[in-house]
């Protein structure tokens, strides 16, 4: 079943929440309010929302340090995410995990990961648990195209196929790994072919098209749930901002980024909504709603207490 056109306004609002979340973080970061790393997902909102919305709440997911949007789309509270960014006690990991480790098992989010490709076997392990427990949960793991050169990528794809595990591999191909153009360090940059070579269905999807993403993941989830095993999805997208704050972006031309802005997910979905008969003022309303959600989260996070130093010593063991 495709994403119903009735839900497209909600998807638009969700993508705007993600975009504005990252913009708010950028402003806080510039103001010296955020420590450590921040890897924005601006431009990649459609694959996050399309993929996550095609899953059930209790389906599992792992994502990467560039996974704020994915975590929010899966259902992580915007307040808890914002508080985590500000290192507050009310953050989703009580200020311990930070930007690269958003986690919320109540919505199936088994953690973002700061080690490239490390999330693949973790999600696949959750899929194994689902299979062993005879449940019909599936697991989805997001990774970048840079992850396909890690040994654990190959090891995991093989096991997933051999054991017919209900897992969906979603490669968000944004063309760059840090400051490197990925095809310069990858033998065959059409990464779906790697998935294919292990004997699983592998598809390339326009990752900036929320409906296409939804359809691809929904089909993969259906297949996984009915015992058909894993699927590989390569979502073609583009990272509109730098790899991280302070990235001088010397590796790409401004014109390239400008061109990408014309086909970015939010612009795209805005056009689509208008084709469907929504007015500009409808879109403005959705925009205002997204803004209110972020303003509320910011206020919540800013008014939250910092964790007490003693909290550093809890949560090490069960």
């Amino acid at each position: 079943m495709p994403l119903s056109p009735n839900r497209l306004p909600d998807a638009y609002r969700q993508m705007l929440v993600i975009r504005k979340f990252e913009e708010a973080i950028r402003d806080l970061y510039m103001g010296g309010k955020i420590r450590g790393s921040f890897h924005p997902c601006v431009g990649q909102e459609a694959s996050a929302v399309g993929a996550c919305w095609a899953l059930q709440k209790d389906d599992y997911m792992t994502c990467t340090y560039r996974g704020h949007g994915q975590a929010l789309a899966k259902g992580l509270s915007v307040r808890a995410a914002m508080a985590e960014m500000l290192g507050k006690a009310t953050g989703c990991s009580k200020g311990k995990g930070g930007s690269m480790h958003f986690t919320d098992p109540s919505v199936g989010l088994l953690g973002a990961n700061a080690i490239v490709a490390a999330g693949l076997p973790l999600a696949t392990g959750a899929a194994l648990a689902s299979q062993l427990q005879k449940q019909d949960h599936v697991a989805l793991t997001f990774f970048g195209e840079g992850a396909v050169n890690q040994g654990v990528f190959f090891e995991t794809l093989n096991l997933a196929v051999v054991w017919k595990l209900p897992v969906i591999f979603v490669c968000e191909n944004n063309h760059y790994s840090e400051m490197t153009v990925s095809h310069e360090t990858t033998s065959n940059s059409e990464t779906y072919k790697r998935g294919e070579s292990f004997g699983m269905p592998a598809v390339v999807v326009d990752g900036n098209d929320v409906e296409a993403m939804y359809a691809a993941v929904e089909a993969a989830a259906e297949r996984a749930r009915s015992g058909g095993g894993p699927t590989y999805i390569e979502a073609m997208t583009y990272r509109l901002w730098g790899h991280m704050m302070g990235d001088p972006e010397g590796y790409r031309a401004k014109e390239e980024v400008a061109r990408a802005r014309e086909v970015e997910p939010i612009v795209r979905l805005g056009k689509r909504l208008k084709e469907l008969g929504y007015s500009q003022s409808d879109l403005d309303t959705l925009n205002a709603e997204a803004e209110a959600i972020i303003a509320d989260a910011l206020q919540f996070a800013q008014n939250s207490p910092a964790p007490k130093p003693a909290e550093a010593f809890t949560d090490v063991f069960a």
Partner: peptide, 16 residues
């Protein structure tokens, strides 16, 4: 360092 993983929030990292 104290025997815990290194946390992110400043108050926690400073304590560790």
């Amino acid at each position: 360092a104290k025997h815990v993983p290194i946390p992110v929030a400043e108050a926690l990292e400073d304590a560790v």
